[in-house]
Nucleic acid binder design. Structure first.
Lengths: 124, 124
DNA sequence: ATAGTAAGTATCTAATTAGATAGTAATGGA
DNA sequence: TCCATTACTATCTAATTAGATACTTACTAT
């Protein structure tokens, strides 16, 4: 199934399409948010993102790493220690996170105004 | 499969989780981008987003409409005319689009620096 | 000896999304 | 009379993602 002629792959060409691809994971934004606050170990992220599973978290982290948003540092200890943090590119993503958080909050406020009220989250 | 106790549904609670849900469609960002420039008819959007299919475009638009980001205006003419535009909430989303575009562009520039060069897109 | 720990991998299934394809409705124009 | 037009809907299949579960490694503390 080769389709060189198709213009499907706007990845790396259109900023919106590119962003969509990078951020498409269910947990991507949340991971970037937590890492924007501080470097975290695998286990710490797992706790923050519960009830995420290990396998899923690993996949999401690999995806972000492949796209260059986060860096992975392995310490050769037993038990293992692996730290995740934002790369330079990931740091540049902060303005997006900020505007997204602002919008998300006003979106939630808007919904609450319409009667879809929920309790405030403990984490996140 | 009822799971009231699970804290899976952070939609409407956590701004990142909420944003993720709203923007999860493959074409969501692109649609919001085009609509942020001007009101568009269904057919116009379809052309801009080619090779999207009608069915897919309809689904994406319904999703955005349900989440309150866009408004749908039907004119009772033959052939039909339906216009889509950003709602108040959609307009508030503009800062996100702007920061996203900025980041996407620098991401692409970064990739090009690493030798993943592509031609510039005609549209988008 | 055994259990606990951290950070995985490997499979497989379930759920969600996107896409292909065909059909509809009402009208104006050739 | 037939075709084009616009904005769909309805099915069905394909592709992608998320999640469940079990296993691994090598060391330390009980």
């Amino acid at each position: 199934m080769k389709n060189e002629s198709e213009k499907k792959d706007l990845f790396g060409i259109c900023p919106y399409f590119t962003s969509q691809k990078v951020l498409s994971g269910k947990w991507a934004l949340l991971i970037l948010h937590y890492l924007s606050e501080r470097t975290l170990r695998f286990k710490e992220l797992e706790r923050e993102l519960a009830p995420i599973t290990q396998a899923t978290l690993t996949k999401q982290l690999r995806n972000l790493e492949e796209h260059g948003l986060i860096t992975r540092t392995v310490y050769n200890t037993i038990p293992p220690k692996v730290e995740y943090s934002l790369s330079e590119l990931g740091l540049q993503f902060k303005p997006v996170l900020d505007s997204l958080e602002k919008w998300g909050d006003s979106y939630i406020a808007h919904m609450e105004g319409k009667g879809v009220l929920k309790e405030k989250a403990h984490n996140c």
